[in-house]
Simulated scan of single mutants.
Amino acid sequence: MAYLEEEFLQLSGLQHFAFCRRQWALIHIEQLWNENLRTVEGNLFHKRAHDEQIREKRGNILILRGLPIASSVIGLSGQCDVVEFHKNQNGISLAKEEGRWQPFPVEYKKGSPKSNDADVLQLCAQAMCLEEMLCCTIEEGALFYGETRHRIPVFFTKELREKVKKAADEMHQMFQRGHTPKVKQTKSCNACSLKEMCLPVLMKKQDVIKYLKTAMEEEE
């Protein structure tokens, strides 16, 4: 199945979806958002990485930032923080550049490596988009974390690609249904910027309809 361009969802949402399906639905279906210190710092950290005016060449590496990407196979679109093109005889040709080049996506994260695979899935999805757009194969990329100040290599295995495809399909199904999952409170809720909107403790005890009904009765 191939998705139409008007059906594409935000690739960045894949990270939200992997972290918490309810968080993803609140942001991408119900259009709710709330900034906290973590999100503000993260946006500032990404500002330079997404500066499309910056184009660097360091020896045999060409660096592009904020590269628009999309895939009709997984139905996602967005931007890469950084894509390095390493000079490689088995790579692809690029306009205005001599030789052949191998794409190598790099995703920048403000914090430290996570215990879940949210960041890895996001990076793999970027690679899958690049492969479709550039007609090439990308076997690896890297995650750069601001707190540790070093890269972690990521290999795009068949299993990882299948996880991305499955998650993307689930996102599309939920989006089409307009479905927001019920609360499943975890320790991660405390760090979520939507904690005050999601109300995980309250919603664990009663459903949204009952909560709204009670609130309206109190106002009357």
Rank of each mutant, 00 (worst) to 15 (best):
L4T: 10
L4I: 03
L4S: 13
E6K: 12
F8V: 03
F8A: 02
F8H: 14
F8Y: 15
L9P: 04
Q10W: 03
S12I: 03
S12Y: 04
C20L: 13
R21W: 12
R22S: 11
R22V: 14
L26Y: 02
I27G: 04
I27F: 03
H28C: 09
I29F: 03
L32T: 02
W33T: 01
E35G: 00
L37G: 01
R38F: 07
R38E: 12
V40A: 07
V40H: 03
N43T: 09
L44E: 12
H46F: 02
R65F: 02
G66D: 15
A70L: 09
V73S: 15
I74G: 09
I74D: 07
G75D: 12
S77L: 10
S77V: 03
D81Q: 06
F85V: 09
K87T: 02
N88K: 13
Q89D: 14
G91F: 03
I92V: 11
L94S: 05
E97A: 11
E97G: 00
G99W: 00
Q102E: 11
P105C: 06
V106P: 02
V106S: 02
E107H: 07
Y108V: 07
P113D: 08
A118S: 15
V120Q: 14
L121Q: 13
Q122D: 08
L123R: 10
A125P: 09
A127K: 04
A127D: 10
M128L: 15
M128W: 02
L130W: 00
M133N: 02
L134W: 10
C135F: 09
C135K: 13
G141K: 08
L143A: 13
F144I: 14
Y145W: 11
Y145T: 11
G146A: 11
G146T: 12
E147H: 11
E147V: 14
R149F: 03
R151D: 07
I152A: 03
V154E: 08
V154Y: 05
F156Y: 03
T157A: 04
R161I: 01
V164T: 08
K165F: 05
K165P: 01
A168K: 04
D169G: 05
M171G: 04
M171Q: 11
Q173E: 15
M174P: 05
R177I: 01
G178C: 05
G178T: 02
H179E: 15
P181K: 06
K182F: 05
A191F: 14
C192E: 04
S193M: 01
S193T: 06
K195P: 00
M197R: 10
M197H: 13
C198A: 07
L199M: 14
V201L: 09
K204N: 11
K205A: 13
D207I: 08
D207T: 06
V208W: 15
K210F: 09
K210Y: 12
T214N: 13
T214S: 13
A215Q: 12
E217N: 10
E217V: 05
E219T: 06
